[in-house]
Nucleic acid binder design. Structure first.
Lengths: 334, 334
DNA sequence: TTGTAAGCGTTATCAG
DNA sequence: CTGATAACGCTTACAA
């Protein structure tokens, strides 16, 4: 590969001059600049990233470490992150913690000298993370994690508010007996949604049958099973609220199989508003989450921390959700 | 950050020894190894990636440059790539060409010194790519591009075969008048699918009305519009085959709006078998594409080229597709 | 088995 | 404005 030296020789200047031209330094005569640019172009030169990183101590890369590159969120999230990062001249190093046999810590260490900062979304063994992460030498933004004690930026979804909003909506439609299909145990989003459900049941004085809280794990199968359980045990809720859309979709198909009509016999609602929700039959009422915005804001915070580490004060932000009413809840649609 | 020097000092050895330990060189006494490891652990040392890259000229990172991080494919593709790459100790640098105002060439150059190789999926201005790319100094694997004249690895989907298989299936069901909703103009997958449709019409001696080829752009709206057109102009196909599932879904909703029943009045089929296809009403018959496998194989080829550049001979591979029969085409389901 | 030292390609500090 | 030159953190001959 062609190096700065060769360009310098070709342009009959010093390497310093070439460096200045490529870094848009004003301390370069126009004639020199042109000579360098011509030489660089002819030689097809472009600076060696690793060499730059070594001396400047900045990689212009941000790391994204996710649980698993799965589902509709992933692409939206990355989309938001990538868009923001690229606009500011940053690259993206994407990794997953799940697929590696390695511990989170190992993956994190392997990023040293490769990234300027990190966006981290991981559910489990968060404690370990909180312990180890912040000594990494670069700023970290946590996604969808419980608020950390450590002084660290963190972003989350308005799970609690979104859930309460949906519960209120269902209640407004006259439902007093609302079943809830829970998400995965360890998941923080899941916990928050459950908390919202319980708070709403309490506050709105709904039926408090503990049997109405069904276990689940965010999978379609779990939703199907929960719905089947509801039918088999004759729990007779008038509405079923699943902690995510996948489970709601699974429930929908189970109810259909059981000969129940949604929304006539039963209202169904989900959470996330995945693209599929709109196409379900009946179309699924859900709580819309803007993952792309989550990604954008996470990147904004991280780049902010990078730009002025001194002025940056870590904080927790929450991305709001919006209620999306469709046919599955039986509301009159305008 | 703690450097190799400090570890060396702490362990009372030379930096070379530390380096050897971290590179698992056998030329280290066990006692020394332990001393170094202890020191490194205590200091929380991990090697600086950029520094390693600079001297070894290998980044252990592969670049992935895509058009747009959109849709269901993206996550599957990345999933496949990431899984394979991580298993072999490689990182992933993800970029998109669409969002940048910069030209493809600029994005590519910016990757020098940051990646060992590149997986490139880009539809348009491919010619420019073919011209510029291969002088980049690192191996490239092309995804879903027309076969290149340049000696370059390339992988594609069996678009042609998949389309023909679907056409054969529809024909077996008795359809002789099959409309086709085309994909985007510039897209290679799109072109191949169209080629397959035409070949099938010819070979199976189906109705050849040119009006049966409807324009589209892979969007749901386009599918909707095409279906509406079919109804309005009374083209009366007995089956409609969309070049992707999104358009098929759009068509489905347009037909429903027009009071037509699928599959009774009309069969509908799509391509890609996105997750949503299964949930459509009626569930959509489609051609399944395994994007995760595409990603895996692309990564395999790239890492192969990286491992032994000499022994590596570029070639074109095609990932097969499979027909997925569901309700929308009216076939009897077992 | 270990240490010394020469790079790797840049940037940045100083003199000119 | 420009040019030497010393880092940056690491690997790798080459010597010991």
């Amino acid at each position: 590969m062609v190096t700065i030296k060769e360009v310098a020789r070709r342009a009959r200047v010093s390497v310093a001059a070439v460096s200045r031209v490529f870094n848009h330094s004003p301390l370069v005569r126009e004639a020199t600049r042109q000579r360098v640019n011509r030489a660089a172009l002819r030689l097809g030169y472009s600076p060696h990233g690793a060499a730059q990183s070594l001396v400047t101590n900045r990689t212009h890369t941000i790391g994204v470490l996710l649980q698993d590159p799965y589902g509709p969120f992933f692409s939206e999230l990355i989309r938001g992150i990538e868009r923001t990062a690229q606009a500011r001249g940053y690259h993206l190093l994407v990794s997953t913690s799940r697929s590696a046999g390695e511990t989170l810590d190992v993956v994190l260490r392997s990023m040293r000298g490769r990234v300027d900062g990190l966006i981290l979304m991981t559910h489990d063994n968060y404690a370990a993370t909180a312990g180890g992460t912040f000594q990494l030498g670069f700023p970290v933004v946590l996604l969808n994690c419980p608020p950390a004690d450590a002084p660290c930026d963190s972003l989350g979804i308005a799970n609690y508010d979104g859930t309460v909003a949906m519960m209120r909506h269902l209640t407004d439609l006259g439902h007093r007996r609302i079943a809830f299909i829970r998400g995965s145990e360890e998941n923080f989003d899941s916990a928050e949604r459950l908390r919202g459900y319980r708070a709403a049941v309490q506050r709105l004085e709904l039926d408090q049958d503990p049997a109405l809280e069904l276990p689940g794990d965010f999978s379609e199968a779990a939703g199907h099973a929960a719905a089947k359980f509801i039918v088999d045990r004759a729990l007779h809720p008038t509405a079923v609220f699943a902690a995510n859309d996948c489970m709601a979709l699974g429930a929908l198909s189970a109810f259909r199989a059981a000969g129940l009509d949604v929304p006539t016999d039963l209202a169904v609602a989900g959470f996330d508003d995945i693209p599929m929700a709109r196409y379900a039959n009946p179309a699924l009422t859900s709580v819309h989450v803007d993952f792309s915005e989550l990604g954008e804001r996470a990147t904004d915070r991280l780049l902010g921390a990078l730009r002025e580490p001194a002025a940056h004060t870590p904080r927790r932000e929450t991305v709001p959700t919006t209620l999306v009413v469709r046919r599955s809840c039986g509301a009159a649609l305008s």
